[in-house]
Structures are given as structure tokens and as C-alpha cells.
């Protein structure tokens, strides 16, 4: 049986379809479920093997991006989430989903961190290069840079102790320059001014991944704007890794 991925949809979530497509391309069954159906008990997190919180503007970014969805995760689904974490369920949050996991305290989990307004002060949509580096279930098999778009206004990662996060191996992705070197905190390769070019982090177990860029929008080569000029950077292996971890475990 295919692994089942829960994609919760809050009012204002909008990349749920993209994320479902990516997990399905990786061999999973993805289910877009409105929060109301989770609150009513019609669907439960324990019916699934992966939780993937999608991008968008849940609640219109009111009071800060991801704040109110993060509140929902804690207030409405706290017990289910704790049980899932205890059962070592892989969890993925992308963009607004990452923001919500940070606000809910799941990422990075052991440090204080926020995703603040982009340094440019603007929403930014552009393709970026991602350098994978952690030893998590999601990223350990990624050896080449990935390419995918960012599309956010609040994605500048700030953490109270970057060195500690690095030494615990919790940096999942950094923004890179086109030549594969680190972006060096320079715009636009680092599109938001994140410290240490951090684009994504994992928790201390490596099971929970959050990232600002949208790997779900580069799972087919034809999506690459550089097609016809260069190749590579397809992000499907990221999703396959998350699924494969379940099959092998």
C-alpha cells in the first residue's frame, strides 16, 4: 500500500495542490483535508504516515505569517501532533507550513528561531539554488544542488545561536550561488537575508523538515526556467527520500 500523506488545508492555504502533486509523483497517496474535517474527527493524523503542511497565506498572514496556523497546531491538534512525533512520523513544512511549524515550536525545536520579513521588505518570487547538507531522512541522499522557486514575504531565518544549530547538524538547506558556492548572504541568491544562508532546517531527530523554498514546484524538468540552457536541480528526490524512509523502516 502506498504511504498516505496528510496535507492540511487552512483558510488561505494555496500550495496544497502543488504539494499533493509532488508527493504523488514520489509514489504516495496525498490527501488534502480542510482543518474542519480534522477538528470534527472525520479524519485523524494517525490515519496517515506523513504530515506535510503546505504553503500559502493561512488566515491572510494576520498577526504574522504562520502565527495562527501554528496556534491551531498547538491548540487544536497538540495531542495528535505529540503522538505523531513520538511515533517518529516524518513531518514536512514548506513556506507557510515551515512558518507554522516554527511558530508551533516544532522547528528547530531546541532553539529560538523566527522567520522574519524579507530584508528587501518585499514579497520575492524567484528561482534559487539550494545546497543540501544535513543527515536527515529527507536530505541524506541529496548530493547535488536543487533548484526551485521561493515565493514569500516573511522568510528571513533568524536563530538565537546559529553555530549551535550548525553543530547539531540541523541545517537542511542553504541558499547557493549559480556556481554551487554559498550565497554569502548576498541578494538575490539569498533572497531574504537569512543568516548563514539558511533556507531550511530539521529538528534534532531529522524527521521534521521545514523550508522556505518550494521544491514541490520543481518535480518535472519542464518546470525549470533554464531548460534548454542547463539541466539539473530537480527536487523529486527530496520527496522520494521522505517516502522511501517509510518503506525501508
Amino acid at each position: 500500500m502506498k504511504p498516505r500523506v496528510l496535507i492540511p488545508v487552512a483558510l488561505g492555504t494555496n500550495r496544497d495542490g502543488d504539494l499533493a502533486d509532488a508527493f504523488e509523483a514520489a509514489g504516495a497517496d496525498a490527501d488534502r483535508v480542510p482543518l474542519s474535517a480534522l477538528r470534527s474527527g472525520e479524519k485523524k493524523l494517525s490515519d496517515y504516515q506523513v504530515l506535510a503542511v503546505p504553503g500559502g497565506f493561512s488566515y491572510g498572514d494576520a498577526l504574522g505569517a504562520g502565527r495562527l496556523l501554528g496556534l491551531d497546531l498547538v491548540e487544536w491538534f497538540g495531542e495528535q501532533l505529540n503522538a505523531a512525533v513520538a511515533a517518529e512520523m516524518p513531518i514536512f513544512g514548506v513556506c507557510n507550513g515551515f512558518q507554522a511549524l516554527v511558530r508551533a515550536g516544532l522547528l528547530p525545536g531546541n532553539r529560538k528561531a523566527v522567520l522574519s520579513h524579507n530584508q528587501s521588505g518585499r514579497f520575492e518570487c524567484r528561482w534559487v539554488t539550494l545546497l543540501p547538507e544535513s543527515n536527515s531522512i529527507w536530505t541524506s541522499n541529496l548530493h547535488e544542488p536543487l533548484r526551485c522557486p521561493v515565493a514569500h514575504g516573511e522568510g528571513r531565518f533568524v536563530v538565537d545561536d546559529l553555530a549551535a544549530l550548525e553543530s547539531s547538524g540541523q541545517i537542511a538547506f542553504r541558499y547557493g550561488a549559480a556556481d554551487g558556492s554559498r550565497a554569502g548572504e548576498a541578494y538575490p541568491a539569498n533572497p531574504n537575508g537569512s543568516v548563514g544562508d539558511v533556507a531550511g532546517v530539521v529538528d534534532s531527530t531529522g524527521l521534521i523538515l521545514g523550508m522556505m523554498p518550494h521544491p514541490e514546484d520543481h518535480i518535472l524538468d519542464r518546470q525549470n526556467p533554464l531548460r534548454g540552457r542547463t539541466t539539473g536541480g530537480n527536487c523529486l528526490p527530496l520527496f522520494q527520500a521522505g517516502i522511501r524512509s517509510l518503506v525501508s523502516s
Binding site: 494555496n14 500550495r15 495542490g17 502543488d18 502533486d21 504553503g55 518585499r122 514579497f123 520575492e124 518570487c125 524567484r126 528561482w127 522557486p149 515565493a151 518550494h214 514541490e216 514546484d217 520543481h218 518535480i219 518535472l220 519542464r222 518546470q223 526556467p225 540552457r229
Partner: peptide
């Protein structure tokens, strides 16, 4: 201006408003 608009959501965009080597 275009960079402040999401032109990638839905994953279907094939020819973007700005393209080329450096987009």
C-alpha cells in the same frame, strides 16, 4: 515588479514573464 508577484504557484508556468540566462 514581477518578482513581487507569485508566477510559480500551481507549478504549471512554462514561459515566464522574464527569462534568459539570468531570468
Amino acid at each position: 515588479v514581477i518578482r513581487t508577484y507569485d508566477h510559480e504557484v500551481m507549478g504549471g508556468t512554462l514561459v515566464r514573464p522574464y527569462g534568459g540566462v539570468a531570468a
